[in-house]
Design a protein around this nucleic acid. Structure first.
Lengths: 92, 92
DNA sequence: TTGATTCATTCAAATATTTCAATAAAGTTA
DNA sequence: TAACTTTATTGAAATATTTGAATGAATCAA
């Protein structure tokens, strides 16, 4: 279905969201909102909005522990679509 | 560079542009504006705008012959980025 | 229960994208 | 040249996205 694809690409077509994916890929770990806020200049609500879009597009998954939410890349989902997100995001 | 990636994903995050890519992939040939206008309901300036975005993102290339412009997928560019456009666009 | 921490939601303003009517541009044909 | 065909550009309205201040919700520690 086209809508799934469009949602995926829309999610990946914003500077901040590409930065999130890039960071997660190169550090190969989880990322909390706070950690990202320490590194980049943007408001917490804006970041929350971007994380939501990435989750909604199935690019990220979340693990909640206490008040922290840890985000990580859902590599299987992207691999099944034939997208090598690391290659795209790092080698251009 | 992020801007190249973002431009690529932005280009692929619109219904009409996904349709164009899908059509080109499944028919494995060239497509002129007129041919596409016969199949879908949209104005000629709108279609021209969409083709421009796909060209600008290096997803399509164009061959001009007389007054006709024939668009086709630049498979090498996408392959180098690790994007299997056929898989993405058809199998979801 | 109170205060602190972390993330989500609401809402309105700023910005960007999409759309098509009108028109231009470029090649083709008679 | 004049009429025709195909695509591009301009400009303005409609629609969608992005942003952060204010506020809410959930968890934890004291």
């Amino acid at each position: 279905m086209n809508k799934v694809v469009i949602k995926l690409f829309k999610a990946l077509s914003h500077e901040t969201r590409v930065e999130i994916v890039k960071y997660l890929f190169s550090n190969r770990k989880e990322l909390s909102c706070q950690e990202f806020l320490d590194k980049f200049t943007l408001s917490q609500p804006t970041l929350s909005h971007h994380f939501n879009k990435l989750i909604d597009a199935n690019i990220l998954k979340v693990r909640k522990e206490g008040t922290s939410h840890f985000y990580s890349i859902d590599r299987n989902y992207l691999k099944n679509l034939g997208i090598d997100i690391g290659k795209i995001v790092n080698e251009t």
